[in-house]
């Protein structure tokens, strides 16, 4: 039996010593500096020319609460429209038919290439181009009667969102392994059925976290609809300060509500992400 190898000499045995706790003095210093700055900002706001009593008074005003409801309703509906359009356009974009691909590419280019506020204004003022709209022989109506602020906002926000969602969906669909589509074809599925039952459900796993993010953005984007008279939160806050000149106070009221909504949605979105982005080893129904 061989003897245990001897170790070269000269190295001290420090196995009995413990490691001392680090002082992290630089971190404490930075933290203190930041706290001082934040406190100064807070104090400036408190002593500034903001009449906080107005903030408190209007925080739960009827018009404000109605505004929040309208904001959320529009956000949900426009997002739903955007998702439906996004799926349809993504499928068209990946179609073997060149006409469909071009239309899809054109739609995405047009609605991502122009500012959202411009699109909202165009929808609202559609009557300048088409005073009457309808289906020849079946139904016609004045464009101004159809394009109410609500519908203009819904179409403007939803169709714009669809252009962005379609890119997310396309990436999601392309991320599904090509073998899945082949396996679906091998059991006789046509393209649309394979997309619907096999590809899209798997794409959803990849797509839902970024869509959650888009929804949070949509909640804030609804504020643009204020210029076409949709009575969402910002619009209603503006009306109040148009009457009482308390501009900053009402903007703070609106800002606080947006912050509240987003602060609730963000952890929900993170939960969504964790549930869906779990590794392929943990796919639950």
């Amino acid at each position: 039996m061989r003897a245990a190898p001897t170790l070269a000499g000269g190295f001290p045995d420090i196995s009995e010593l413990t490691v001392a706790r680090q002082a992290h003095w630089r971190r404490w210093l930075t933290a203190a500096a930041i706290i001082v700055v934040l406190a100064a900002i807070g104090r400036a706001f408190a002593n500034g020319q903001i009449e906080w009593v107005y903030v408190g008074r209007f925080l739960t005003a009827t018009a404000i609460l109605e505004g929040i409801v309208n904001t959320m309703v529009m956000a949900v509906l426009a997002m739903a429209l955007g998702i439906v359009l996004g799926v349809v356009v993504a499928i068209m974009r990946l179609s073997p038919n060149p006409v469909l691909t071009s239309v899809a590419a054109g739609y995405t280019w047009l609605f991502r290439g122009t500012p959202l506020i411009l699109q909202l204004l165009l929808w609202f003022n559609l009557a300048l181009v088409f005073p009457t709209i309808g289906i020849p022989g079946l139904w016609s109506a004045r464009a101004v009667d159809v394009m109410t602020p609500f519908l203009s906002a819904l179409l403007g926000l939803g169709i714009n969102q669809g252009a962005y969602t379609s890119e997310v969906m396309r990436a999601g669909m392309l991320s599904v392994d090509a073998g899945q589509y082949e396996a679906a074809q091998a059991i006789g599925m046509g393209r649309l059925r394979a997309l619907r039952r096999i590809i899209l459900p798997q794409a959803m796993r990849v797509v839902i976290p970024p869509l959650g993010n888009e929804f949070i953005g949509m909640v804030k984007a609804t504020s643009l609809a204020s210029v076409i008279q949709y009575p969402e939160l910002l619009h209603n806050a503006e009306n109040i300060y148009y009457a009482n000149s308390r501009v900053i106070e009402l903007l703070i009221v609106a800002g606080l509500w947006y912050l509240l909504v987003v602060s609730i949605l963000t952890p929900l979105q993170m939960l969504l992400e964790r549930r869906f982005a779990r590794g392929s080893l943990q796919i639950a129904r």
Binding site: G179, E182, A183, A186, I187, Q202
Partner: peptide
């Protein structure tokens, strides 16, 4: 009927 090298079962 086809059997693939990478199985290609539907994971969902």
């Amino acid at each position: 009927g086809m059997v693939f090298q990478r199985f290609n079962l539907f994971p969902h």
